[in-house]
Design a binder for these strands. Structure first.
Lengths: 388, 388
DNA sequence: CCAAAAATGTTTCTGAACTGAACATATCGG
DNA sequence: CCGATATGTTCAGTTCAGAAACATTTTTGG
């Protein structure tokens, strides 16, 4: 029943958050630009910027040469001194990187596996990497950990319900990592976090209503942005397009499938680059037919979600992007055919742009979410125990 | 880029809005209850309640006998003095009612038509009804008009793109009504407004993630609530489940259809009550088969949306509720079969409860939205021109 | 090279809004 | 009737944004 906005102090929190978010999402801004962007008084922006600098969330730098009349305005930039650890355990490898508020990635490492990592191994890897922070990145402050898991994650407590490709079932990952490291931990579904990344920094920038679908070797995952906010649903399991039954009665990720494309091409396995090249080069009628079939089914599924959610952009990643890009305007037309006319007017279908950075950026963004929402709340507790 | 929370005055607005919303949605509350519900100081609640009373949005009444120790706390109740006009033009009749902030309906009238009303007739009817306010409901203050239209409505300017059953195409209804009456006007899709009504006062109370589907004579419409907020989508066309292609390849509202039920039953037309009775009473195998077929298709569609949105409740209205209610636990099981297991855990499927009041309540709620969000903003301008 | 204009930083004061403490009031229970 | 309890009421204290006045830095134009 109680939302926000109690005392006057909440105003300060909100305004700090607004300024921090602006520089985090749009990069360095002069104080005068922030004044215009927020509508706040320039004296207020002055104190806000100073406070954020004190909290080591931004740096206030020398003004840049602007060749314009008037006193130069200092730049307010997100700092790389405050970082989170972004983690993405996958079947063949686990990626980790420290990501700064300025989005720079430090100490990006990729640990190859011969078999999927166990939860215990993953926790140990994260913990070890955290310990290496002091030596590898002196002067950096770690304020949280974000983990992108390819599976269903309960949002409330970062509990991995089922990650079939990793073989993880009912793993209290957030709690395990938090206990091992002492840092606040956020665990999320990989596609959901990918959607967040594309929304904040990628193909869906500036769009308030976004549908994101990613096609990978293990299936189709997705994420939604509604009213500019990521949608987890009641428990955090939203975005599971892959398990929908499509118009042909099949499960979507069975009928629209990277594996089936490879089979038709006669390839055993291939990277996305190889697959894309093979698809672009082929003239074999059975391959073209399979591509077209998958395009049709995918288009109908996208049309359905467009009818229901009326997004302004649908972002496709992985091999789904390849299917669409083969003849983008035609693909959009096929989707539009099944969408109510007005819905189709404002709808754009586009490809994801963040490539392999996407999941780490998304995981980092999730880990930063708390500071971004309340800059005062987190920063004061350096090695604090997690909220869980 | 600028959201909210500029000055300290915004705090007052937010807190007024919070208190007003609580009494609007939950009915009369004592000031001490409001203190607990909001977490605000009791002196603050005192001034907030007084301000809202001054604005004629609430009434502060004598304390009720509570048989408890301590000084009795005055009741803060939503007032019926401040009303909106809720309107629902339909093929066979147009319904209008003045609805108070306490949700009481005054002067509820139903104007029968022999043919669908034209926009001009509807505007005239609304305008006339507004004029009758002074004589019929002296002492009441009209602060807005909400119109529920069975068709696609552009949210930004209340522009009716296409209302096929009324035969309306590209009608600037909000502007027409606003010009004719001088009051702020909100126009919305009927099913979207129905979803809002069920969320605030009906079967979806307290749920933050809701899918609402209504089955009527003219097809299937729907609405979504995500994060506790109604979802309009990029342009306001969200919720059009009816035009999705279902698992059988047909358009949902073609294959799951009230008309087809009636045909199978051998009825020409029937009210919902008659249809429900006929369905309940039938033992004819072809009718049972048709019911089962529609249930299966509907269940698969609901499963799809549950996978994508992970709602905590799906609310069904009209004949869709009849289909489900025939064997509710079995229907839920069929849906759950196609839903990822964790999604299904928290999912409830239930029937709408507001019945024929739903659309007028939803239209009223939309018209109240502005005051509820900013009690200071609206009330000071009695006959003000609309924002459009 | 210097003065005016322009834009922004900085300082100080004011007003708005909530909190908390002290006091007042109303009800219940014995 | 009195004490305990809960709440209303009043008032001083704190926080914060805004506004105004002044200071600073740069460009522009002679």
């Amino acid at each position: 029943m109680s939302d926000r906005a109690l005392g006057v102090e909440q105003v300060r929190r909100d305004n700090l958050a607004r300024v921090l978010r602006i520089v985090h999402e749009n990069g360095p801004q002069s104080r005068s630009e922030l004044t215009r962007a927020t509508g706040l008084n320039r004296s207020t922006i002055g104190t806000l910027a100073a406070d954020l600098a004190e909290l080591q969330l931004v740096e206030v730098r020398e003004p840049v040469l602007t060749r314009r009349v008037g006193r130069p305005s200092p730049m307010v930039a997100p700092t790389d001194r405050t970082v989170v650890l972004a983690v993405n355990p996958e079947v063949d490898a686990t990626e980790l990187a420290f990501v700064g508020l300025d989005l720079t990635m430090h100490h990006h490492i990729r640990v190859e596996h011969t078999r999927p990592p166990t939860p215990a191994e993953t926790v140990a890897l994260i913990s070890d990497t955290c310990d290496s922070l002091a030596s590898d990145l002196p002067g950096r402050r770690l304020i949280g950990i974000g983990v992108a898991v390819p599976g269903l994650v309960r949002a409330a407590d970062g509990f991995v319900r089922d990650a079939p490709h990793l073989g993880w079932v009912e793993v209290p990952l957030q709690q395990l990592v938090a206990s091992a490291t002492g840092h606040p931990v956020v665990v999320g579904n990989d596609a959901n976090l990918g959607a967040i990344a594309e929304h904040v920094f990628g193909a869906a920038r500036g769009h308030d209503h976004v549908v994101y679908l990613n096609g990978g070797a293990s299936g189709i995952g997705g994420g939604l942005i509604v009213h500019g906010m990521p949608v987890g649903g009641a428990s955090g399991y939203a975005g599971e397009f892959g398990h929908n039954r499509a118009v042909d009665g099949e499960v979507l990720e069975t009928t629209v499938s990277r594996t089936r494309l490879l089979e038709t091409l006669g390839l055993a396995s291939a990277s996305d680059a190889v697959l894309a090249a093979a698809l672009a080069g082929t003239t074999a009628p059975e391959v073209l037919a399979e591509i077209d079939r998958q395009r049709q089914v995918l288009a109908a599924s996208l049309a359905n979600v467009a009818n229901v959610l009326d997004p302004s952009v649908i972002v496709l990643g992985g091999f789904l992007a390849m299917l669409a890009e083969r003849a983008p305007e035609d693909f959009t037309a096929v989707v539009a055919e099944h969408v109510m006319a007005p819905n189709a007017e404002d709808l754009r279908i586009t490809s994801a742009v963040l490539a392999e950075r996407r999941l780490l950026v998304g995981a980092a963004e999730a880990a930063f979410a708390e500071v971004l929402a309340d800059p005062l709340g987190v920063s004061l507790t350096p090695g604090a125990l997690p909220t869980a």
